[in-house]
Write a protein that binds this DNA or RNA. Structure first.
Length: 698
RNA sequence: GGGCGAUUAGCUCAGUCGGUUAGAGCGCGUGCCUCACAUGCACGAGGUCAGUGGUUCGAGCCCACUAUCGCCCACCA
């Protein structure tokens, strides 16, 4: 009610009980409806308190009635308004959210929910309730017991953050710290730029007790129990000078101000992060200048979760700069959140976790580790379910069995374990040059991936190399020449080094197998990532082996298409464009024969397609498989036509591109060269395919 | 309210600096218990890269808008 008037102002609230703590009603300065209230007083119903009418830009004239009840002791916005307009807050609640004496004797002792109803009832009785309606809004809840939290004025300890944030902000802006993925940098910067003072006192039992002591004589009894415990003191103005407040590591004997020995420690404990932010150096013996501290501070990489960037990462950065004069780490790897297959975050309290111990029992520890790494892409959440662990288990099994094969055939008399380069001087066969080349390329790529924190990519590279190059091709080739010292040395080296790069991903199985291999006695696996050998990267070997793999695959394809029995051996004729190409195939003929089940292999430059044969084109080679009595000409025609068709379409695209003036002008030279080369290659392939088709028609 | 992510094969997801034909695992089809491995081997099928428009000689990738799903932050009377 407006004082000395019959007019009423209507306010809206979701918490009627806080009306008992109202000290003003606020309006927007732009709101014409309430202009006439400037300088007026209002009367709060039910307890008839006199209220100020204030005008402030914080009030949104379009929200509700445009009139905002102001309760500085029980609402953050209202608290701000209270400071601006110099209003005395009235705290009407006890720490347990029951109403206190300030709420008037009628309501004292009631729970706030009970009081809420009581106030509504009181307003209704007086005919002052305009309406009650359901309203959805967000309220804070306790993280442990989920009780609705009531904002309430109390006295707390704060850390002034602006000065601390300044340098931590600079570190990010000047890129002395880097986030992986980089987008989190923005989140960090945004928070630092809008930093707010940090409330570090907590009213819980467990924690570091705040090292502040109060002289009861100087501060009075309520100094210790303060606003949180004694409502009558809550409305005091904060003191700027505080005689009798002693901050000390140890309990003081007497008050330095008045000499009284009647001293009591603050009952609150520190926010858990207030000790955590010291973690990068307090764990190393700080504030003593220990050897550990000198050696390990600063470190390089922090691995953590996104929700902890503010709580922990930002604060460690500030503490590190403040107390050590230096950032604690330069790289911050933010991993995704682990979710179940419905997308819900996995947590112990929700009970939707997969217990790692169960997975270890069922699939193995290495399977667990490798599988998790494989599905963890930088910056992406991972969706976890039991079946994801199968691939890790299968890979471990593969490693074990491949190693068994090697160990069964390894003759330690034939290998030189003392040097890594027992084969470097001898001229190696293609398959050895190839697998070494592939190994060192993999080693390089795995290293690069790890350096950029792409651990899933690194895992995939190793998996691909070990399974599909080392096992599927090299070991199959090696079965032919296992007794040669060259193969022995190579198999040993590649397996031994593969185990070393596997070790961070699958520590147990790699260690176990490594111990079964012969070694110099002082060798230690864990500490030795293999050295990169650029000399052993052999692009020619890569290309030659690609051709052999393509030939074997083409023959297998033909076998499969024409349903040639798995056991049956066949003849194969290969037409080559040059003598060097012929030489490569002749030298490696045994391997083609073994892997494609071929008994007769003819390789020549001038070779006529045998009658009744299936044909395939592999680059500049032509593969013919005589299939007398088996081949179905119509079917073979379809097969070749289909290949021809897709090749033709691509050839057309490429031709168009190479005729396009603007492409030739704008594209980089190396791209144009590559396009031209493959255009030429395709042309030759097309000619061969067409010739094959013709020979069928005849 | 502010900030951000995702949308690619039946499923779960990779995809580097924009560059020829977009990859993997699982699943699927066919044939194999080949003397390391059936937790395996070989061959194969399967894609309008959410939609629309734009930039570019060239777009899964860059820009704008739209749709759907999701996350983080916040003092929504």
């Amino acid at each position: 009610k407006i004082k000395d008037s019959q007019e009423h102002v209507v306010v809206a609230t979701t918490r009627p009980e806080t009306m008992l703590g109202d000290v003003a009603v606020a309006f927007s300065p732009k709101d014409k409806r309430y202009k006439h209230l400037k300088g007026k007083k209002l009367i709060l119903p039910v307890i008839n308190r006199e209220l100020e009418a204030i005008f402030d830009r914080l009030v949104d004239p379009k929200f509700g009635t445009g009139a905002l009840k102001v309760t500085p002791a029980h609402d953050p916005v209202d608290f701000q308004l209270g400071l601006t307009h110099k209003l005395e807050p009235i705290n009407v609640m006890n720490p347990d959210a029951t109403m206190n004496r300030e709420a008037s004797v009628d309501y004292e002792g009631m729970d706030r929910i009970e009081c809420r109803e009581a106030i509504l009832e009181a307003l209704k009785e007086r005919g002052l309730l305009v309406k009650a309606e359901p309203h959805r809004h967000a309220v804070g809840h306790c993280y442990r017991c989920h009780t609705m939290v009531e904002p309430r004025l109390s006295k707390q300890w704060f850390v002034k953050m602006k000065p601390l944030a300044k340098k931590a902000l600079e570190a990010a802006k000047k890129k002395r710290i880097k986030f992986y993925p980089a987008r989190w940098t923005k989140v960090y910067i945004n928070w630092m730029e809008n930093i707010r003072d940090w409330c570090i006192s907590r009213q819980i039992w467990w924690g570091h007790r705040i090292p502040v002591y109060y002289c009861k004589k100087c501060q009075g009894r309520s100094a210790v129990s303060d606003a949180r415990l004694a409502p009558s003191s809550a409305n005091r103005k904060p003191q700027t000078v505080n005689p009798g407040i002693i901050v000390s590591k140890t309990r003081p004997d007497k008050c330095p101000s008045c000499g009284s020995a009647d001293i009591e420690q603050d009952p609150d404990v520190l926010d858990t992060w207030f000790s955590s932010w010291l973690w990068p150096f307090s764990t190393l013996g700080w504030p003593s200048e220990t050897e550990d501290l000198k050696y390990f501070y600063p470190t390089k990489t922090l691995v953590t979760a996104q929700e902890i960037i503010f709580f922990w990462v930002a604060r460690m950065m500030m503490a590190g700069i403040e107390f050590m004069g230096e950032i604690p780490f330069s790289d911050i790897y933010i991993h995704g959140t682990v979710r179940d297959d419905t997308g819900t975050k996995m947590s112990k309290s929700l009970g939707n976790i997969i217990d790692p111990l169960d997975i270890i029992n069922e699939f193995g520890a290495d399977a667990l580790r490798f599988s998790i790494i494989s599905i963890t892409a930088v910056g992406q959440d991972v969706f976890l379910s039991r079946d994801k662990f199968e691939s890790g288990r299968n890979f471990a099994n593969k490693i074990w069995n491949a190693s068994r094969l090697v160990l069964m055939n390894l003759d330690s008399g034939k290998i030189d374990i003392d040097t890594d380069d027992s084969f470097k001087d001898s001229s190696l066969e293609l398959k050895e040059r190839w697998i070494l080349s592939r190994f060192y390329q993999t080693l390089k790529n795995v290293g690069d991936s790890l350096d950029s924190y792409k651990i899933n990519e690194a895992a995939k590279l190793i998996y691909e190399f070990f399974w599909h190059e080392f096992c599927d091709w090299y070991l199959e080739f090696a079965k032919t020449t296992f007794s040669s010292s060259q193969t022995q040395a190579c198999v040993y080296q590649v397996l031994e080094k593969s185990l070393r790069i596997l070790h961070p991903f699958m520590p147990f199985i790699s260690e176990e197998i490594w111990q079964l291999l012969p070694h110099r006695s002082e060798s230690v696996m864990v500490a030795s990532w293999p050295e990169f050998e650029k000399k052993l990267i052999d692009k020619k070997a890569d290309r030659d082996m690609d051709a052999i793999i393509a030939i074997v695959t083409a023959i297998r394809n033909i076998r499969s298409t024409w349903r040639i029995e798995a056991q049956k051996t066949i003849a194969v004729h290969i037409k080559v464009p040059s003598d060097p190409a012929k030489k490569v195939l002749i030298e490696n003929g045994e391997y083609i024969k073994r892997l494609a089940k071929v008994d007769e292999l003819i390789v020549d430059r001038d070779l006529v397609k045998p009658k009744s044969s299936a044909a395939d084109v592999c680059g500049d080679l032509e593969v013919f498989v005589p299939l007398k009595g088996i081949i179905d000409y119509e079917k073979e025609k379809d097969r070749i036509s289909k290949n021809l068709e897709s090749l033709n379409a691509r050839f057309g695209d490429l031709s168009g591109k190479l005729k396009n003036e603007r492409f030739l002008q704008n594209a980089p030279a190396d791209v144009i060269d590559k396009f031209k080369a493959s255009h030429q290659e395709m042309k030759l392939q097309l000619e061969k395919l067409e010739a094959n088709l013709d020979s069928i028609k005849r």
